[in-house]
């Protein structure tokens, strides 16, 4: 598996979520971004724990982030 997306981004020059492949479904992108922001900004877990699990997940799935 590669971390190179198989789907083309909406705008290859954009750095925002809405220029990425998620931009093909703006309402889905909005719902995802809102949930993601809530997850990071609030909740029971501290940021170190959240970031550690995010990084571990990214390594396992060969995600580029």
């Amino acid at each position: 598996m590669s971390s190179t997306p198989r789907l083309d981004p909406v705008d290859p020059t954009a750095r925002s979520v809405f220029g990425s492949i998620l931009g093909h479904q703006p309402q889905l992108a909005t719902a995802f971004s809102t949930l993601y922001a809530e997850f990071w900004q609030r909740g029971e877990l501290d940021h170190i724990t959240k970031e550690t699990t995010r990084l571990r997940n990214a390594r396992i799935t060969d995600c580029g982030y």
């Binding site: 309402q27 889905l28 719902a31 949930l35 809530e38 997850f39 609030r42 909740g43 029971e44």
Partner: peptide, 19 residues
């Protein structure tokens, strides 16, 4: 378990299903 995330998860799943 996580009250503040529930409505956002519902919204995301609903959007995925409807599209």
């Amino acid at each position: 378990a996580q009250t503040h995330l529930a409505p956002f998860i519902d919204e995301l799943r609903g959007q995925a299903i409807s599209t």
